[in-house]
Amino acid sequence: MEEMYDNKKNLTNLLMNIKTNDLISNSSYSPSKVNFLDKMFAHSLGVSAKKTLGLYNLIFNQLQEGNDVSSIKRLINQEVSKRSKVNLGIPFFKNSSARICGLMAMKYSGFFNSEIDIYNELYAGFEGQTDYNIGDKTREIVSENTEK
């Protein structure tokens, strides 16, 4: 968090790296003594995490391009609906589809909407900056917005 970055594209790369790092680290919180089904559940959590990472990538790229926040929110909600759907190929059964409930819950709890608002503030604050400390700048932006 303390490195120097020079434009919005670098900020996107930085945020994606932080998000990826966080998600990989999260795996270490999984319980160790679990049965076979729990391990499958852990795998589905990982699939969810991968899809979440893809959604963050989309959010950051949209913000990087300076698109309107409300249209980004609409786009992300549509994408969650689309990406949460997965095809099931079960031997001897007809193919069917299902949804990953965790992603749907993220959508309906307004998780991504508040994330988009916060990251939009970050991108707006970094605009035009060529040399800064991301940790200090984040605190600065947040305190400015808190004072309003």
């Binding site: 994606m16 790296n17 990826t20 790092n21 998600l23 990989i24 999260n26 795996s27 270490s28 919180y29 999984s30 319980p31 160790s32 679990v34 729990d38 391990k39 499958m40 559940f41 852990a42 795998h43 589905s44 959590l45 990982g46 699939v47 969810s48 995490a49 991968k50 990472l53």
Partner: peptide, 22 residues
């Protein structure tokens, strides 16, 4: 005895290249 964390990571496998950038 393999930990559940390994199975979580297997779900994230497509992002191995990004992980290596850290």
């Amino acid at each position: 005895a393999l930990p559940a964390s390994l199975f979580f990571l297997s779900g994230l496998e497509a992002y191995a290249s990004e992980a290596s950038d850290i």
